[in-house]
C-alpha cells in the first residue's frame, strides 16, 4: 500500500516542525527519512501514524489513494515500532504480541487458538521461538526490538512505521539487525517508512532516501543517486565524509575522501595534480585515512586502501602528489 503525504504543515507553538511536506512512498518500498535531530522526521512519521495531527488546512495523508487524514491512529492500520520499543513491561512476550488482537471487539476478535497460532507464527518470523513466556526486561535490546516488530505486525498493518529502529542498540547488533530487516522486508513486502539520523543506515537499507533538514525535505531519491548527486551542500556534508575545498575565487568544491588519488611527488603533473604534505596517517582497518596539507594550506582527507598505503610506504611529513578524480562532483 502506497503512502501519499500532501502539503503537510505542523507547528508547535511558534516552532515550525514541518513546512509544506509532500512525499510519495511507493507501494512495497523501504523508505528512509534521514536527517539530523530537529529536522522534523519523527514528527512526520507520527503524523503518518495518526499519533500527531498536522495543522488544519490543506495537508492530507493518503494510504493507497484513500484519505486517512481524519482517521484516528487505532483505525489506520499502521504498525508502529517505537524508538525504545514501548513494550508493555508487565506482560509476557506472547501477551505483548497478542495485544492488538485482544483489544478487538468480541465480534472481530479471533478465537484463542487462532491468536495462539498467530503468536507462534510471528515469533518464528522474528526468530524468537520459545521466548513467549518471558517478560521484556529478560530480553536483550535486539530481541526487544524484534518483539516490538512482531507486536506491530500482529494486527496485519497496511504500512509499517519505524522510529529510529536501531537507535538504542550497540554497533554490532545494529549492523546484523539492519541486514536482517532488509531481508525481512523483502520477504513480507510491506510498505515501510523508517526514521534515522544515521546516513550509513539509510543508504544501506532503503530503496528511497528522503533527506530532511529544518522542517523541509532537502532531497528525495535512491541511495546511490543521492550519494552521487547531492543537490545541496547540506546533503553533501550529511551523507558521509566530504572535503570542502575553497578555490581562490571564493567558490567551493566538495570532494569525497575516496575520490582522491595519491602518488609520489616525483609523478607530479602540474596540469592535473597538486602537491601536498602528509600531516597524519590512520591505518587501523582495511581503509587507511590520510590527512594531507595542500600547498595553499588547506587540509584534505584522503582514503586509500591498506594495500596501496603499504605499496607507497608513506610516512607523515612525506611530500605527495594528489589528483582529484573526474567522477567527483564539483561546485555546488
Amino acid at each position: 500500500m502506497s503512502i501519499s503525504i500532501k502539503s503537510i504543515n505542523k507547528t508547535f507553538g511558534n516552532y515550525a516542525a514541518l513546512e509544506n511536506i509532500s512525499l510519495e512512498v511507493p507501494n512495497g518500498s523501504l523508505t528512509a527519512l534521514l536527517g539530523p535531530s530537529g529536522s522534523g522526521k519523527t514528527t512526520l512519521l507520527r503524523i503518518v501514524a495518526g499519533l500527531e495531527f498536522s495543522d488544519p488546512g490543506e495537508g492530507r495523508i493518503l494510504f493507497h489513494g484513500e484519505d486517512v487524514s481524519e482517521t484516528p491512529a487505532g483505525k489506520r492500520g499502521v504498525g508502529f515500532v517505537f524508538q525504545h520499543y514501548a513494550l508493555f513491561r508487565h506482560m509476557t512476550i506472547a501477551e505483548n504480541i497478542a495485544f492488538g488482537l485482544s483489544v478487538l471487539p468480541r465480534s472481530l476478535r479471533p478465537a484463542k487458538a487462532e491468536i495462539h497460532a498467530r503468536i507462534s507464527e510471528l515469533l518464528k518470523l522474528v526468530k524468537l521461538e520459545g521466548l513467549d513466556k518471558r517478560r521484556p526486561h529478560e530480553l536483550s535490546g535486539g530481541q526487544r526490538q524484534r518483539v516490538a516488530l512482531a507486536r506491530a505486525l500482529a494486527i496485519q498493518p497496511k504500512v509499517l512505521l519505524l522510529d529510529e529502529p536501531f537507535g538504542a542498540l550497540d554497533a554490532q547488533v545494529r549492523k546484523s539487525l539492519r541486514r536482517w530487516l532488509r531481508v525481512f522486508h523483502d520477504e513480507i513486502g510491506l510498505t515501510t517508512l523508517f526514521v534515522t539520523h544515521d546516513q550509513e543506515e539509510a543508504l544501506e537499507l532503503a530503496d528511497q532516501v528522503v533527506v530532511m533538514r529544518n522542517a523541509r525535505i532537502e532531497q528525495v531519491g535512491k541511495p546511490q543517486e543521492i550519494y552521487d548527486h547531492p543537490r545541496s551542500p547540506f546533503v553533501y556534508e550529511f551523507l558521509g565524509n566530504v572535503n570542502k575545498l575553497s578555490a581562490s575565487n571564493g567558490s567551493h568544491r566538495y570532494i569525497r575522501p575516496h575520490e582522491i588519488e595519491i602518488a609520489f611527488a616525483a609523478e607530479y603533473n602540474p596540469e592535473t595534480d597538486r602537491l601536498a604534505k602528509i600531516d597524519h596517517l590512520f591505518s587501523a582497518g582495511p581503509v587507511a585515512t590520510l590527512s594531507v596539507r595542500l600547498d595553499d594550506g588547506q587540509f584534505l582527507e584522503v582514503e586509500i586502501s591498506r594495500k596501496q598505503l603499504d605499496e607507497l610506504a608513506l610516512d607523515p611529513g612525506d611530500e605527495v602528489s594528489i589528483r582529484i578524480m573526474d567522477s567527483s562532483k564539483s561546485g555546488v
Binding site: A49, L51, G74, F80, F82, A86, L87, F88, V103
Partner: peptide, 16 residues
C-alpha cells in the same frame, strides 16, 4: 506515554 501510544496504534480504546 510511550506504552499508551503503542496501545493506541494497536487499536486499543481509551478505557482498554
Amino acid at each position: 506515554s510511550d506504552q499508551e501510544e503503542a496501545a493506541v496504534t494497536l487499536g486499543a480504546r481509551g478505557w482498554q
